[in-house]
Design a protein around this nucleic acid. Structure first.
Lengths: 202, 202
DNA sequence: GCGTTGCGAAACTCAAGCGTATCGAAATTA
DNA sequence: TAATTTCGATACGCTTGAGTTTCGCAACGC
């Protein structure tokens, strides 16, 4: 009221450490990336890994699930810019993001958790889907619809089925392919194969 | 030596109950099917569900992982007979098995565990793959190669990629599609879409 | 009948981890 | 400086579950 308290009106006392907060999130993601399921993840392990007291965690999140929700939500989906030159190129860009992510532990962890623990932690999944998956699905849908309009794709295309074909084929590779890195041109090959179909007379 | 001990040479004492053994396996599969991860699975829960003492479990398996390995190995993959009339029909049969299984809790559990816990329990996965996955992959591969030879599929087909397209698209649907049953003609639609491709000039 | 082995039930020890409380030190405002 | 709040550390009570042991009874061979 008197002078300026305008912007934040700090509540007095030592402020919360942003560094600690980031360390907690990072530790959580690291542990998940190392193959831990949500249920195996322990607050004590997170605190230890982050070099932080348990108190500091519980002051911010009331339980493990809330923390994991925030940690996964932190993983933003930095959608690559779609050039829009050709639908084929844009689809390759979209699929190649998946390929690249599957090579990183961070990326794998997201899929692992999403695939396996959706049943057990539906609330977690809902938020995560909105944040990380929907934007990508939307981008692919827009691209496919653009292709239908432009004649680059068949006019009677089932867009949902096409999305499943593209993403599903890439996911099948990231999950089940033999160990080691995926070939650099995988996205391109998938897009071409899905466009051409496996039937005769290419 | 003396008379006949030939076939089994029973070791004297009360024989182990086959009924108990089956109940244990069934209870294990049921619990996994209900959405439990391997780590959340408790021997006590299994014993209780099976109506069996913990002793009876530990007399047969030395720990949880051994039990789960045996339980999953029990799930045989009853490959449907392939009529061999047309490659298209056979592919539909193969994919429709996946669709039907995804509607059952038992089927879901297998995929859940396979997808999510492969990193943590590699030994378990190795055995499970050999038993349940490889035969199906082989069946699909044989079918596709037959299609190439007969001219039903394009001569320059990348068989591995085609397998990923077919299985991946179905898996994408079973995992990410909106809740509820999958349409009965999904396998047919996928096979036709994958054969035709999404590009122009069907 | 007798020795052996399996049975389910229950009690036990041990470890991990949750969520809370308490500590002295540090950071910040008034 | 005084009040307030957070910090990391540690200890605590509590629950869960692993794996073991003991119990009385049941099923088998001899």
């Amino acid at each position: 009221m008197t002078i300026q308290e305008s912007t934040t009106a700090r509540p007095a006392g030592r402020p919360r450490s942003e560094k600690a907060e980031k360390a907690i999130i990072e530790a959580t993601l690291d542990l998940i990336a190392e193959g831990m399921g949500v249920s195996e993840l322990s607050i004590e392990a997170i605190a230890s890994r982050a070099g932080v007291g348990k108190t500091t965690i519980y002051r911010r999140w009331s339980n493990k699930e809330d923390l994991v929700v925030d940690a996964l939500a932190t993983l933003k989906a930095p959608l690559p810019p779609l050039l829009g030159e050709s639908v084929r190129d844009d689809l390759i860009v979209l699929l190649d993001v998946m390929r690249k992510e599957s090579g990183q532990a961070r990326g794998r962890c997201v899929m692992n958790v999403a695939m396996s623990e959706a049943d057990r932690y539906p609330r977690l999944m809902e938020r995560f889907m909105k944040r990380a998956v929907e934007p990508r699905k939307l981008a692919m849908r827009v691209t496919l619809e653009r292709g239908v309009a432009s004649g680059e794709l068949r006019p009677d295309l089932d867009v949902d089925l096409a999305m499943a074909m593209l993403s599903g084929t890439m996911m099948h590779n990231t999950k089940w392919a033999p160990a080691g890195d995926l070939p650099a041109d995988l996205a391109e090959r998938i897009v071409d194969a899905v466009m051409a179909g496996i039937g005769p007379q290419g």
